[in-house]
Design a binder for these strands. Sequence first.
DNA 1: ATTAGGG
DNA 2: CCCTAAT
Length: 701
Amino acid sequence: MVLQKRLDYGFSGYQVPAIPRATRSARKRVPFRKRDEGSQISAFDLLATVAGKLLLDKESAPALNDTWSVEDQSAVETNTVKEERGDGNLSLKLETCNQDSADAEFFASELVPQTSDPKYSSKESPSLRNGALVATSNCLERFDDQKLMNGKIKNEMGGLACNVETGPSVCARFGDCIKPVSENKVSTDEELDRTDKVLIKGADKCHLEDALVSDVKPPALVSSDISIKARSYEDHDPLVSFPTKRDDVDVVSRDDDEKSSGCTHPSPPREPFRSTPHIGDRRIRKVLASKYWKVAPRSKNVTYSHYDEYLKSGHCNRSAYKRVRSGKNYPFKKRKFFYCSTESNSDGGTSSEGISDSPGKNNNRNSSFLYSKMHGVTGESSSPANQHKSFNSRDSHVKLRIKSFRVPELFIEIPESATVGSLKRTVMEAVTTILGDGLCVGVLLQGKKVRDDNKTLLQTGISCDNQMDALGFSLEPNPSHTSPSLCPGGSPLKLPRDTPLPLARYPTNPCLVNQVTCDPSPEPHMPNLGNLIESNNGCASSPTDMFDKSTTESKALVAVPAMSMETLAVVPVHKKSKQSEVAQRRIRRPFSITEVEALVQAVEKLGTGRWRDVKLRAFDNAKHRTYVDLKDKWKTLLHTARISPQQRRGEPVPQELLDRVLNAHTYWSRQQAKQPESCLLYHNSTMIASSRRDVDEKILG
DNA sequence: ATTAGGG
DNA sequence: CCCTAAT
């Protein structure tokens, strides 16, 4: 609880999947901008792979690498959304808390792909340009490899799945097999061929010709046990669906419909329906985007089958998908996620941008509403929805929809004199640090943290039958990364064996932080790293075991980019803007002997119980000493005076002063019992220990 | 806003 | 130092 208070801005949610454009509008978001250095792994990727094991679209990745900045403070405070640019970059949304200690929500969402840009469609993927991205992909690849080794990976193009729980091998996969339709497979399968052609045609008609890329979604990863699919529903990219016989227009409409198919059965069956080829034209997507969100009835599985098979057949082999990763096919996945719209989505529902009208869309839209509420859930329960019960029942798999992760809170304090730009930077850095630092995933059930990683879902009580609302996930700071320096006590957190130590994400020297923030105030500031630590503690019992399985993976990922976060996540400064921000604990400022002297003197004169007067008299110009502080100090002085010298700690207080404290205390105590006003009496009778000067002064006063 | 005390 | 209840 305490922690909460300290946060000025808490990032409580990280929304992984892209939010449909329409939706976005509803929510306010603060755009983030890209950072100069491109060498680090994107936070997004980290989240996806390491921490959240979420499958994210590659598309978004590029953006993450960039630095984010808050548009402006007001936006943050007001929860205003700034429109992100259409550059296709990922945008993060920062939502501040209007209420007291409410946490701000931080969302990362991907932008709707820019359809029109040809370059993306075919070859150059933004990622390539960005070194960071490259790194990412590598990491990802590793995962892929692992999976492959495990044999669990499926080649089909599936939707992204997020395996939260079990599999060691959970990895986020980004576009596994994506190829331009035209290029890839057409030749291979005739059947498919046909389809493809059709598709292409449709595309053309739509004027989408520039980029027809069929995106194949990565198959859902199925880990042995249970896989939670973040985007189960979305598995089928709308675009994919298009293969049907419809004409151009149809294609569009289809997309919408397709979504429904998203939920697939995890492991066992690699049903054709699962894999969904995507036609990857950005434009198309864009167009379709509106529809994506809608829930579609899964009627079309059949339709896909060909396609799926085709895909399975091996068109998407590893190489293919490497390729994909590296560059090209970002486009498809995102949508999937959200077929269940979040609130925003629902809101966005309004946004049907110029999309072609495809009949039947409305239906989908409605369904999306169901989820509208979920959006806001940042806290404990991330309410995964398992909406389609029908799917669940048959296999023992629990299907979850992870709406958002709770991200560890960050405390950001900035001097009022700071510029908006610095605020932006600060937030950016804080977020980046957190996100990039490697995260653990926490599982919350009924608001309680599930600490035992070894329990099965069943044992834990997580089952399809349960209200999924009770289940939540959280992203927690990776304890291993917490810098020892942060621990005041000097007892650094234990590092888990596996963790990569070398990564020092947080500045060792707190001061650095300050520099960054430019806190004008003369007073020393302490870094507020505490919250990080605290939150860690608060989390799971042993951070280490938190994600055993994923450990390996995460390690790798984390290590790679070695984020060079020069800045600390936490930036100390003072910001008092609102009550909402809980004040940070004031820095400790031990009383100097001089101060003690002044205090004692004042108390001798004024007596205890008149702290305001004491303050005015002796500490009027010491703004950091409040009367409460003085009162507290007196309390401790008294205590110190009463204990043996050996027990005293800190800078020793002259015995003489302590004696005076004792005397004054006894005297004033007595006075209180009797009559309040006898300063003189005190002087006359008790001043033995008082110095001459004191006496004089008192008398004078 | 202060005081008094417990934490 | 913080937090609160009680003034």
